[in-house]
């Protein structure tokens, strides 16, 4: 890995994002606005908001980074800049690390802003530490990035790329245990949910929210970290130096 190339790449990606003011505003405003909506939608049952609030704070970055990365990477493929980079002395891991670093920065800012609004203004309660929620949120941002990078190889247009969100992420949201506890699902779905990375991302957040810092939390974190690496390796395999 080449530090100079990684830093050049991540600052380039951040510069591109900064230039796109509207996207940036959406990245930072959408999660707090959604949480505010939920708080008042659940006015009659505040305990429900306290249950799903912290996991949502930690899962928003995953969704947004998934969409942003899959489109950014698709653009990189279709504009020919990826081919140009691949013909230069740049290792695939440099490019991936550059993307990872840039989106970790964005994920940090997003998770911090969202947490500040949720725990500060909206009075969301958690048994565990808020900084742990933020830390898990950053990890989830990286998971979203890695998954987005991988699926971008299967999209030939931005139209398709955005559809991967409902296709690949929403089902995971449904099965993660956030909507219905996993034990109450049909048995095959419960098994299936055990294979999906978001299940572990959610479980870690739910444990922190409940103040349970047991070994299971570290197992969850380990699985999420493993999924990030796996998705990055698969994503790297889709970066081809030679094409037909």
């Amino acid at each position: 890995m080449n530090r100079r190339i990684v830093l050049a790449t991540s600052s380039r990606i951040l510069r591109q994002l900064r230039r796109d003011r509207r996207s940036l505003a959406l990245v930072l405003l959408v999660p707090p606005v959604l949480l505010t909506l939920m708080k008042y939608a659940f006015e009659g049952q505040p305990q429900a908001f306290d249950r799903i609030g912290p996991p949502l704070v930690g899962l928003f970055p995953l969704t947004l980074m998934f969409v942003i990365t899959s489109i950014a990477m698709l653009r990189e493929r279709t504009s020919g800049t990826l081919e140009r980079l691949m013909s230069m002395p740049l290792a695939k891991v440099d490019l991936l690390a550059g993307y990872g670093l840039a989106f970790a920065v964005v994920g940090t800012v997003q998770a911090t802003v969202t947490s500040a609004v949720a725990f500060g203004l909206l009075g969301l309660e958690t048994e565990g530490a808020v900084w742990l929620v933020v830390l898990l949120a950053i990890g989830n941002a990286l998971l979203g990035m890695a998954l987005g990078l991988f699926v971008s190889a299967f999209a030939t247009s931005e139209f398709q790329a955005v559809q991967f969100m409902p296709a690949a992420i929403l089902p995971q949201f449904l099965l993660a245990g956030l909507v219905v506890p996993r034990e109450q699902m049909a048995r095959p779905l419960e098994w299936l949910s055990a294979l999906l990375p978001l299940t572990y991302a959610y479980d870690a957040l739910a444990l922190v929210a409940a103040g349970d810092l047991s070994g299971r939390l570290w197992l969850d974190v380990g699985v999420v970290a493993g999924c990030i690496v796996l998705a990055l390796v698969l994503g790297a395999a889709t970066l081809r130096r030679r094409t037909a």
Partner: peptide
């Protein structure tokens, strides 16, 4: 240098 310019359009 490819036939279609390959630079970042937003930079």
């Amino acid at each position: 240098v490819t036939q279609t310019p390959s630079v970042y359009g937003d930079l």
